[in-house]
C-alpha cells in the first residue's frame, strides 16, 4: 500500500481452488490497507471471504483494486462487511475502484458486496471486469446508492464489462451525479430513483434454455442476455427496497422461492 497526497493505492488478491476433498481452498488471501480480507464460515463446498473495511474510502485520489480468481472446482463467495462509501478527499481528482474477477470452467464465483454509496462531493470511477469461459458460473450483484440520506449524490461512473471466452458478453456503464451528461436523472434513465442495481447470473445450463423475460414490479426486469446469462436491472427509491427486489430475483433464479 502506498499513501500520501496522491491518495491511497491498495490491492487485495484472492485465489480459490478445489482442496481435493470436495471443498474450496484459498491459496491466496492478501488484503492491503483499507482492503482487509477475512475468511468466514462458508456453506458446503463454498469458501466465503468478507471484505472488511479497515478505513473509510475510497476518497478522491485513492485507487483500490480487488482481484479474485476461482479455478476449476472452486466455489468462492465474496461479500463485504459494510457498504462502501465514496467520499470527497484531500487529494484532487477522482477515486478509482477496480474489480477484476476470473472464473474458470467448473468454478463458481458469487460476488455479492454491500452497496456502493456515492456521497455528496465525491468523484468515483468504478470498473468491474469479469473474465469467464464456457462452463463458468457467476452470480454478481452491483448496487449504487446516489447520496446518503437526503443528500445530493457525488459523481459516479460505474462500468461493468463481462467477457466470455474473450468475447464481449455484457458491457454496461452508468454515469450519474454532477458533471454527468444531461438527462441522467430524467425520464429515460433514472427518473429520480436514488438506488440502482444489477444482478447478473451466468450458468452453463442457460446455453440450453434461458429464462424468459420477466417484470419484477414496476421498476425492475429480468432479461435473458445474448449468451448463457440473465440480467436483472432494478431501480428503487432507496437501498432497502432495491435489495429486496434483487434478493427475491436471486431466490427465484436459485430455485428457492
Amino acid at each position: 500500500m502506498t499513501g500520501g497526497a496522491a491518495g491511497v493505492r491498495a490491492t487485495a488478491r484472492i485465489a480459490a481452488r478445489s482442496d481435493g476433498r470436495g471443498g474450496t481452498a484459498l491459496p491466496t488471501l492478501e488484503g492491503e490497507g483499507p482492503l482487509a480480507l477475512r475468511r468466514t464460515r462458508g456453506s458446503g463446498a463454498e469458501a466465503r471471504v468478507m471484505l472488511v473495511g479497515a478505513m473509510s474510502g475510497p476518497l478522491g485520489g485513492d485507487h483500490f483494486t480487488v482481484e479474485a480468481a476461482a479455478a476449476e472446482g472452486a466455489a468462492l463467495h465474496i461479500g463485504s462487511a459494510a457498504a462502501t462509501i465514496a467520499l470527497p478527499g484531500q487529494a484532487k481528482g477522482e477515486a478509482r475502484y477496480d474489480v477484476r474477477l476470473t472464473v474458470a470452467a467448473g468454478a463458481e464465483l458469487r460476488w455479492l458486496p454491500e452497496q456502493l454509496i456515492s456521497a455528496n462531493g465525491s468523484d468515483l470511477y468504478v470498473t468491474t471486469h469479469v473474465d469467464l469461459v464456457p462452463g463458468a458460473r457467476l452470480v454478481l450483484r452491483e448496487e449504487q446508492v446516489l447520496g446518503r440520506a437526503h443528500e445530493e449524490p457525488g459523481r459516479l461512473t460505474s462500468r461493468l464489462t463481462v467477457r466470455l471466452r474473450g468475447r464481449p458478453f455484457l458491457d454496461q456503464e452508468l454515469c450519474c451525479g454532477p458533471g454527468a451528461s444531461g438527462g441522467w436523472d430524467g425520464p429515460a434513465v433514472l427518473a429520480g430513483h436514488r438506488a440502482v442495481g444489477q444482478l447478473l447470473v451466468v450458468r452453463p445450463e442457460f446455453a440450453e434454455a434461458l429464462p424468459s423475460p420477466q417484470l419484477l414490479g414496476e421498476c425492475a426486469a429480468l432479461t435473458p442476455l445474448a449468451g448463457p446469462g440473465v440480467l436483472v436491472t432494478a431501480l428503487a427509491p432507496n437501498a432497502l427496497r432495491l435489495r429486496r427486489t434483487l434478493d427475491e430475483a436471486l431466490r427465484t433464479l436459485d430455485g428457492r422461492v
Binding site: E173, V189, T233
Partner: peptide, 11 residues
C-alpha cells in the same frame, strides 16, 4: 466504444 446505459429504457 461507450457502453452507457439507461436503466429505465431497458426495464
Amino acid at each position: 466504444l461507450p457502453a452507457v446505459s439507461a436503466p429505465l429504457l431497458e426495464i
